[in-house]
Design a protein around this nucleic acid. Sequence first.
DNA 1: ATGACTGCAAAGACTTTGCATCTTT
DNA 2: AAAGATGCAAAGTCTTTGCAGTCAT
Lengths: 140, 140
Amino acid sequence: MIIIIEIHEVILLIESRKNSRKRNAILEAMRGTKSHPSAQWVYDSLRSSYPELSLATVYRNIKLFERSGEIISVAVVDGQERYDACVLPHSHFICRGCAAVIDLDFPEDLENARDRLESEEGFKIESVCVSYKGLCRHCL
Amino acid sequence: MIIIIEIHEVILLIESRKNSRKRNAILEAMRGTKSHPSAQWVYDSLRSSYPELSLATVYRNIKLFERSGEIISVAVVDGQERYDACVLPHSHFICRGCAAVIDLDFPEDLENARDRLESEEGFKIESVCVSYKGLCRHCL
DNA sequence: ATGACTGCAAAGACTTTGCATCTTT
DNA sequence: AAAGATGCAAAGTCTTTGCAGTCAT
């Protein structure tokens, strides 16, 4: 059942849930890593503890967590969507070599941050991407 | 033929090309729009002028342009990769309603920019994403 | 009992690739 | 001629979905 509540122009979408061991394990796995996991990563990391877990369940729960705001999508790397259970504002470094996604502080000054990351962290930064997401005037 | 040149630790990858009407048209189409097109968009917009154009050719040339730096990938929106033939630093607003990708200036101050965009452009901004791409220490 | 959750297999969507044919140099 | 470019269809990935059976309330 999906309940849609509108209060003062704010629309809340509440999906009712029952308790589920596997769902809990999926969220725990995502909260317990800084690897910014893909669905496949979560599946692989839980297979030993939950041998009958299916990849479809992981995908379904990830979408559920995303809709509820418990996790966010941080990037699509090499065709795989990557998520983060840390929803506080911060930024990321994405390595095109090993596909690692690494947490960074939210920068005060973008150019400053770039130089500092190269010298202090030893990254080679090839591009900086800033994007805002939301609704345009037309879709509001 | 692919020529790999290394000069002072900088590696250049040069792919030899022959002249091709369709390739020229693909790049022109991408340079002539601010819509941050997907491969499908480019294909659709060229079909009337090049009825025998195939989607595979569009994909192949887009990858070629990307490797050579003539275009960049700016986002994956609703599962489709979106490109930009403007490679100068700037940022984007991505609408989750209509999937529009809109050019913005590169911000000096991130929080400032957010407020200004909401009041002046009428966007509703739900998230800000900063990511750096390149090579980590390990992959260098 | 009812509604939610899951596994499995099938379907979908987007992208890449193999191969024969045609173009450019 | 040789190296590239293209169309077509097939294959590849990642993700979503339909359905029947299971679990939580």
